[in-house]
């Protein structure tokens, strides 16, 4: 275990390119031990590359990264003893039972056969897989397989846990179960570094969120601070007719957080003060005829995401904000 004044993850000017494609273009971040850090970003933002570098699977192209105080290149063997990685594909053998998978992983961390057996039983219990323990992993549901995968990553009692999109493709109930497990881990004192495309996931779980877009961090802070950063509130304006809607949308450009042509509604960031709202209304609607109604909402993570990256996180989520 690392001591509490060493950052669990520290990244300085990290870069990575594949050929001419620059995936990471100078990322700096620090993650305090015992916290849950979420790296949020759209598909192709560089999240997986970041995790692979930190988990020592890929060498950085430039800059420096340490995990649990160890350099991911020069001290990669020590990093590997301190971490675990759960990737997007469940890394378990479908032809082995849940228990066999766990025993195998436990023996790979150096436990003896009896100790491995004990550790596997413990983890099956903790991840609610006791009944399924003697069944082949190939027969598991998606949620069970993810839980087994996560259990397998914990056999070596890592102090820093990397989870690359741990709930992608899971149904709502399995996702909730996964969130409970992840929260428990952090309460147990470990550091969790997770990547996600789900804003709600980052909002619910993370102590700190960084938003990665086109290989660089565009924001870094608590969920509350990020929402503040884009104004904290969203002003939804309902325009009188389609022509007014188009004119207002054109005037606001990429400041628009929400577009709903069917209801002729546009959302824009504001701090919620009367002065700012008045100024916005005057800007959009100098003739005082275009805007029918307005409403103020607390900004959601979707708004933050959209304001920061210029792309919706997922089309569906933005549509039903």
């Amino acid at each position: 275990m690392c001591s509490y004044n060493v950052p669990a993850v520290e990244v300085t000017a990290l870069q990575k390119s594949y050929g001419a494609k620059r995936v990471l273009t100078g990322v700096d971040l620090r993650v305090a031990p015992g916290t849950l850090f979420a790296l949020l970003g759209p598909n192709g933002a560089g999240k997986t590359t970041m995790v692979r570098i930190l988990a020592t699977l890929t060498e950085p192209g430039g800059g420096r990264a340490t995990v649990a105080g160890f350099d991911v290149v020069r001290e990669r063997h020590r990093v590997r003893r301190a971490i675990s990685l759960t990737g997007q594909y469940a890394a378990v053998d479908e032809l082995q039972t849940g228990a066999e998978n766990l025993r195998m992983m436990a023996r790979l961390t150096g436990l003896s056969r009896p100790d491995a057996r004990r550790r596997a039983a413990e983890l099956l219990e903790r991840f609610d897989l006791v009944d399924a323990g003697d069944r082949r992993a190939g027969t598991y549901s998606g949620g069970m397989r993810r839980r087994l995968d996560l259990a397998a990553s914990l056999v070596g009692q890592p102090s820093v846990i990397f989870l690359d999109e741990p709930t992608t493709g899971l149904d709502v109930r399995s996702r909730q179960a996964m969130w409970d497990v992840v929260s428990d881990l952090v309460r147990g004192g470990v550091t969790v570094f997770l990547t996600t495309q789900y804003l709600e996931e980052a909002d619910q779980l993370a102590d700190r969120i960084a938003v990665l877009d086109h290989g660089r961090l565009v924001a870094d802070g608590t969920a509350a601070r990020l929402k503040e950063q884009v104004g904290g509130r969203r002003l939804d304006l309902t325009l009188a007719d389609p022509a007014a809607y188009d004119a207002a949308a054109a005037r606001l450009g990429d400041r628009v957080l929400l577009r709903d042509p069917a209801r002729r509604t546009l959302g824009v960031a504001t701090d919620g003060s009367a002065a700012h709202v008045r100024a916005l209304l005057d800007e959009i609607d100098p003739g005082r005829r275009a805007v029918d109604r307005f409403a103020l909402h607390a900004a959601t993570m979707d708004d933050v995401f959209l304001a920061l990256t210029g792309t919706p996180a997922r089309e569906k989520e933005t549509a039903d904000v």
Partner: peptide, 13 residues
């Protein structure tokens, strides 16, 4: 082509 080799490598296997 699956994920297990990454898991092994991250465990120093």
């Amino acid at each position: 082509t699956g994920g297990i080799v990454d898991r092994f490598r991250s465990m120093d296997v």
